[in-house]
Protein backbone atom coordinates (compact mmCIF):
# COMPACT_ATOMS: atom_id res chain seq x y z
CA UNK A 1 0.00 0.00 0.00
CA UNK A 2 0.97 3.65 -0.25
CA UNK A 3 2.01 4.90 3.18
CA UNK A 4 1.49 8.55 4.07
CA UNK A 5 1.52 10.75 7.12
CA UNK A 6 -0.60 13.74 8.04
CA UNK A 7 1.07 17.10 7.54
CA UNK A 8 1.75 19.09 10.72
CA UNK A 9 -1.46 20.79 11.81
CA UNK A 10 0.07 24.26 11.61
CA UNK A 11 1.08 23.70 8.00
CA UNK A 12 -2.50 22.66 7.21
CA UNK A 13 -3.90 25.69 9.05
CA UNK A 14 -1.53 27.89 7.04
CA UNK A 15 -2.76 26.43 3.74
CA UNK A 16 -6.37 27.00 4.79
CA UNK A 17 -5.83 30.53 6.08
CA UNK A 18 -7.50 32.30 3.15
CA UNK A 19 -10.55 30.01 2.99
CA UNK A 20 -13.70 29.80 5.09
CA UNK A 21 -15.65 27.08 3.29
CA UNK A 22 -13.71 23.95 2.47
CA UNK A 23 -14.39 20.32 1.59
CA UNK A 24 -12.16 17.71 3.25
CA UNK A 25 -11.94 14.54 1.18
CA UNK A 26 -10.52 11.32 2.61
CA UNK A 27 -9.55 8.20 0.69
CA UNK A 28 -10.72 4.80 1.86
CA UNK A 29 -7.95 2.69 0.37
CA UNK A 30 -4.21 2.81 1.16
CA UNK A 31 -4.21 5.88 3.40
CA UNK A 32 -7.19 4.56 5.36
CA UNK A 33 -5.27 1.35 6.08
CA UNK A 34 -2.19 3.30 7.17
CA UNK A 35 -4.43 5.49 9.35
CA UNK A 36 -3.50 8.77 7.72
CA UNK A 37 -6.37 9.82 5.49
CA UNK A 38 -9.41 7.55 5.82
CA UNK A 39 -12.89 8.61 6.86
CA UNK A 40 -11.95 8.63 10.54
CA UNK A 41 -8.76 10.64 10.12
CA UNK A 42 -10.67 13.09 7.92
CA UNK A 43 -13.18 13.57 10.74
CA UNK A 44 -10.47 14.09 13.35
CA UNK A 45 -8.57 16.61 11.22
CA UNK A 46 -11.74 18.51 10.31
CA UNK A 47 -12.68 18.67 13.98
CA UNK A 48 -9.23 19.97 14.94
CA UNK A 49 -9.23 22.60 12.20
CA UNK A 50 -12.74 23.79 13.15
CA UNK A 51 -11.66 24.09 16.80
CA UNK A 52 -8.44 25.92 15.90
CA UNK A 53 -10.19 28.39 13.63
CA UNK A 54 -13.01 29.00 16.11
CA UNK A 55 -10.39 29.61 18.81
CA UNK A 56 -8.59 32.07 16.53
CA UNK A 57 -11.86 33.94 15.95
CA UNK A 58 -11.96 32.94 12.26
CA UNK A 59 -14.54 30.16 12.02
CA UNK A 60 -14.38 27.86 9.03
CA UNK A 61 -17.11 25.74 7.50
CA UNK A 62 -15.84 22.26 6.70
CA UNK A 63 -17.76 19.42 5.14
CA UNK A 64 -16.29 15.96 5.14
CA UNK A 65 -16.36 13.22 2.53
CA UNK A 66 -14.44 10.02 1.97
CA UNK A 67 -14.39 8.24 -1.35
CA UNK A 68 -13.25 4.73 -2.07
CA UNK A 69 -10.26 5.74 -4.21
CA UNK A 70 -9.13 9.22 -5.10
CA UNK A 71 -6.93 7.80 -7.84
CA UNK A 72 -9.89 6.65 -9.96
CA UNK A 73 -12.13 8.95 -11.93
CA UNK A 74 -15.24 6.81 -11.41
CA UNK A 75 -15.06 7.36 -7.65
CA UNK A 76 -14.35 11.09 -8.00
CA UNK A 77 -17.19 11.69 -10.44
CA UNK A 78 -20.06 11.59 -7.88
CA UNK A 79 -18.28 14.02 -5.55
CA UNK A 80 -19.90 17.47 -5.50
CA UNK A 81 -17.66 20.45 -4.75
CA UNK A 82 -19.93 23.32 -5.76
CA UNK A 83 -19.85 26.20 -3.34
CA UNK A 84 -16.51 25.30 -1.76
CA UNK A 85 -13.53 27.61 -2.05
CA UNK A 86 -11.03 24.75 -1.86
CA UNK A 87 -10.64 21.04 -1.25
CA UNK A 88 -8.24 19.53 1.27
CA UNK A 89 -7.37 16.03 0.11
CA UNK A 90 -6.36 13.38 2.60
CA UNK A 91 -5.43 11.06 -0.21
CA UNK A 92 -1.88 10.31 -1.30
CA UNK A 93 -0.24 12.62 -3.83
CA UNK A 94 -1.95 10.69 -6.62
CA UNK A 95 -5.33 11.56 -5.15
CA UNK A 96 -4.40 15.24 -4.86
CA UNK A 97 -3.32 15.26 -8.52
CA UNK A 98 -6.54 13.58 -9.63
CA UNK A 99 -8.83 15.85 -7.61
CA UNK A 100 -6.95 18.90 -8.87
CA UNK A 101 -7.40 17.68 -12.46
CA UNK A 102 -11.12 17.14 -11.89
CA UNK A 103 -12.22 20.22 -9.95
CA UNK A 104 -11.68 23.83 -10.93
CA UNK A 105 -10.80 24.94 -7.41
CA UNK A 106 -7.56 24.70 -5.42
CA UNK A 107 -6.86 21.21 -4.05
CA UNK A 108 -4.53 21.17 -1.05
CA UNK A 109 -2.56 18.19 0.27
CA UNK A 110 -3.35 17.17 3.83
CA UNK A 111 -0.76 14.39 3.81
CA UNK A 112 2.89 13.90 3.05
CA UNK A 113 3.05 10.79 0.88
CA UNK A 114 5.89 8.55 1.94
CA UNK A 115 6.42 5.17 0.33
CA UNK A 116 5.09 1.81 -0.74
CA UNK A 117 5.21 -0.45 2.25
CA UNK A 118 3.68 -3.03 4.51
CA UNK A 119 2.34 -3.15 8.05
CA UNK A 120 5.12 -4.32 10.35
CA UNK A 121 2.93 -4.21 13.44
CA UNK A 122 -0.11 -2.17 14.48
CA UNK A 123 0.99 1.44 14.08
CA UNK A 124 4.29 0.64 12.31
CA UNK A 125 4.77 0.68 8.55
CA UNK A 126 7.95 -0.12 6.63
CA UNK A 127 9.09 0.48 3.08
CA UNK A 128 9.58 -2.69 1.06
CA UNK A 129 9.32 -1.74 -2.62
CA UNK A 130 10.80 1.20 -4.50
CA UNK A 131 8.76 0.67 -7.68
CA UNK A 132 11.98 0.57 -9.71
CA UNK A 133 10.29 -0.99 -12.74
CA UNK A 134 12.79 -3.86 -13.06
CA UNK A 135 12.13 -6.38 -10.28
CA UNK A 136 15.00 -8.52 -8.99
CA UNK A 137 13.20 -10.23 -6.11
CA UNK A 138 13.50 -13.68 -7.75
CA UNK A 139 17.27 -13.44 -7.24
CA UNK A 140 17.16 -12.12 -3.71
CA UNK A 141 14.77 -14.43 -1.90
CA UNK A 142 11.96 -11.87 -1.98
CA UNK A 143 13.95 -9.19 -0.14
CA UNK A 144 14.32 -5.99 -2.14
CA UNK A 145 17.91 -4.69 -2.26
CA UNK A 146 16.81 -1.54 -4.11
CA UNK A 147 14.86 -0.19 -1.17
CA UNK A 148 16.16 -2.15 1.79
CA UNK A 149 19.86 -1.63 1.04
CA UNK A 150 20.89 1.98 1.68
CA UNK A 151 23.15 1.82 -1.41
CA UNK A 152 20.67 -0.18 -3.55
CA UNK A 153 23.48 -2.64 -4.25
CA UNK A 154 22.74 -5.45 -6.67
CA UNK A 155 25.73 -7.53 -5.54
CA UNK A 156 26.05 -7.02 -1.82
CA UNK A 157 26.84 -6.93 0.97
CA UNK A 158 29.18 -3.96 0.92
CA UNK A 159 30.78 -4.92 4.23
CA UNK A 160 29.56 -1.82 6.00
CA UNK A 161 27.50 -3.45 8.68
CA UNK A 162 27.70 -3.67 12.43
CA UNK A 163 28.47 -6.84 14.41
CA UNK A 164 24.76 -7.37 14.96
CA UNK A 165 24.02 -7.16 11.24
CA UNK A 166 22.68 -3.61 11.07
CA UNK A 167 23.41 -1.23 8.22
CA UNK A 168 26.23 1.22 8.93
CA UNK A 169 24.00 4.08 7.71
CA UNK A 170 22.70 4.33 11.27
CA UNK A 171 19.03 3.98 10.41
CA UNK A 172 18.77 0.90 12.61
CA UNK A 173 17.72 -1.15 9.60
CA UNK A 174 19.16 -4.64 9.17
CA UNK A 175 21.63 -5.09 6.33
CA UNK A 176 19.47 -6.17 3.39
CA UNK A 177 22.19 -8.39 1.96
CA UNK A 178 22.72 -10.29 5.22
CA UNK A 179 18.94 -10.84 5.24
CA UNK A 180 19.11 -11.98 1.61
CA UNK A 181 21.96 -14.40 2.43
CA UNK A 182 19.99 -15.91 5.33
CA UNK A 183 16.81 -16.20 3.26
CA UNK A 184 18.58 -17.85 0.32
CA UNK A 185 20.25 -20.26 2.73
CA UNK A 186 16.86 -21.20 4.20
CA UNK A 187 15.51 -21.70 0.70
CA UNK A 188 18.49 -23.84 -0.35
CA UNK A 189 19.32 -21.33 -3.07
CA UNK A 190 22.61 -20.04 -1.69
CA UNK A 191 24.48 -20.84 -4.91
CA UNK A 192 22.66 -17.91 -6.55
CA UNK A 193 24.80 -15.61 -4.37
CA UNK A 194 27.78 -16.64 -6.49
CA UNK A 195 26.14 -15.31 -9.65
CA UNK A 196 26.96 -11.70 -10.44
CA UNK A 197 23.91 -9.64 -11.26
CA UNK A 198 24.22 -7.66 -14.48
CA UNK A 199 23.92 -3.86 -14.34
CA UNK A 200 20.35 -2.95 -13.51
CA UNK A 201 18.20 -1.12 -16.04
CA UNK A 202 17.50 2.10 -14.15
CA UNK A 203 15.78 3.66 -17.16
CA UNK A 204 12.55 2.10 -15.91
CA UNK A 205 12.88 3.86 -12.53
CA UNK A 206 10.96 7.02 -11.73
CA UNK A 207 14.06 9.20 -12.11
CA UNK A 208 13.75 8.78 -15.86
CA UNK A 209 10.56 10.86 -15.82
CA UNK A 210 6.88 10.13 -15.21
CA UNK A 211 5.92 6.60 -16.18
CA UNK A 212 2.79 5.48 -17.99
CA UNK A 213 1.59 1.92 -18.41
CA UNK A 214 -0.57 1.03 -21.38
CA UNK A 215 -2.33 -2.28 -22.00
CA UNK A 216 -3.86 -2.05 -25.42
CA UNK A 217 -5.82 -5.29 -24.98
CA UNK A 218 -7.94 -3.85 -22.18
CA UNK A 219 -8.39 -0.31 -23.48
CA UNK A 220 -11.96 0.62 -24.34
Amino acid sequence: MIVADQKPINEILGMLERYDKVLFVGCQTCVAVCMAGGEKETGVLASLVRLARQKAGQPIEIDEAAIQRQCEEEFIEPLEADGYQAILSLGCGVGVNKLADHFGIPVLPGLNTGFMGHIEEHGVWAETCAGCGDCVLHRTGGICPVVRCAKSLMNGPCGGYTDDGLCESGTGAPCAWIAIYKRLKELGLLESMTETSPPKDWSKDRFSGPRTRVREDVRL
Binding site: N10, L48, L51
Partner: peptide
Protein backbone atom coordinates in the same frame (compact mmCIF):
# COMPACT_ATOMS: atom_id res chain seq x y z
CA UNK B 1 -0.49 17.54 21.80
CA UNK B 2 -2.65 18.28 18.79
CA UNK B 3 -4.84 20.69 20.75
CA UNK B 4 -1.77 22.54 21.98
CA UNK B 5 -0.47 22.84 18.43
CA UNK B 6 -3.74 24.50 17.43
CA UNK B 7 -3.61 27.03 20.25
CA UNK B 8 -5.99 25.31 22.65
Amino acid sequence: DQLEQTGI
